[in-house]
């Protein structure tokens, strides 16, 4: 059973840590956005875009969770039949998106918060603020990619 437990922990860390990153990031950006809206409610739409940007890490984490669960389901074996080694492999494969999602989420949130003040002064430049945020997100994307590639190499037996 330990093998399966490790698999579950891996999936949970992928979704949980990345979700934490998104929650923190959206929170940081959201606070800055509220400040700007208090001055000019018309900027709500543009600011919502910035606030939502760090939300993708959580989604990537969820994608990783589903890929782990799907992979296990596709083998069609009992949970107790998962070897400890395989469980550890799942745990390891889950870490890139979990960790990269957590850290990149926080920093993307900070960049987006700064972009909110950019929008406050120059409403037309929201695109540039978005691009600054997307540069941070690259590492969450790469984390997801690393997780996917590692999962590909895990076999049973």
């Amino acid at each position: 059973m330990l093998g399966f437990a490790l698999l579950v922990i891996g999936a949970a860390l992928a979704a949980g840590l990345a979700g934490c990153g998104s929650a923190l990031g959206c929170g940081i950006a959201g606070m800055a956005a509220s400040g700007v809206v208090s001055e000019d409610p018309n900027k709500f739409g543009r600011l919502l875009l910035l606030q939502a940007l760090p939300g993708t890490q959580g989604i990537y984490g969820l994608v990783a969770l589903f890929m782990i669960v799907n992979k296990f389901a596709s083998w069609g074996i009992e949970p107790s039949a998962v070897p400890v080694r395989t469980g550890l492999e799942f745990l390891g494969a889950a870490l890139p998106i979990g960790l990269a999602g957590l850290v990149s989420g926080v920093y993307q949130g900070k960049v987006c918060a700064a972009a909110c003040s950019l929008v406050a002064k120059r409403p037309g430049e929201v695109g540039k603020g978005l691009v600054f945020g997307v540069v941070v997100e690259t590492y969450a994307v790469l984390g997801l990619l690393a997780t996917i590639l590692l999962l590909q190499r895990i076999t049973i037996g």
């Binding site: 993708t56 989604i59 969820l62 994608v63 589903f66 690259t138 994307v141 790469l142 990619l145 996917i148």
Partner: peptide, 20 residues
């Protein structure tokens, strides 16, 4: 070139969430 891996990752994310 590595940066274009996002094309795969984002495509996968769309599909995986839809399946979920």
């Amino acid at each position: 070139v590595l940066s274009y891996a996002r094309l795969l990752a984002l495509g996968l994310a769309t599909g995986a969430i839809a399946i979920a």
